[in-house]
Amino acid sequence: MKLNQLSVFLENKPGRLSEPCKVLADAGVNILTISLADTEQFGILRLIVPDWQKAKNALEKAQCVVNVTEVVAVEVEDKPGGLQNVLQVMEQAQLNIEYMYAFTFRRENKAIIVFRFEDPDTAVKLLQQKALKILSSEEVCQRVEG
């Protein structure tokens, strides 16, 4: 029930964001969601794609530095307090969140939030106990691509 997220190192130069995106477009890889963590010096681009292995190969072939990390996608109600409920569960379970970001697509009043935990396996177990909806890779694709 975990997703493989790709992270790409971006150095501080013009056009740095479009480069990996173009590589993926040329390789025919659809980007489900994208998030950028940025500093003055460098950035980290995080991506969820349907076929992470194919995307990774294409990026590496283009000399990008890529790594793969396991993240957890949780479905939340797209209404006031929807995210708050989920975060409360995590706080109570004392799950340490490294970072999180939301999917850009929303359907049927649901939103998808991606969490990066220090220990994703424990997190998945705990969240399932709390009856939170954790999405598989296929489910994420279905919901985003329709």
Partner: peptide, 18 residues
């Protein structure tokens, strides 16, 4: 030049390296 084995998806780790 960053080496692939030193790259992390965590900003905190990258800043610590720097």
């Amino acid at each position: 030049e960053i080496r692939p084995q030193d790259f992390s998806d965590k900003m905190s780790q990258m800043q610590a390296l720097r």
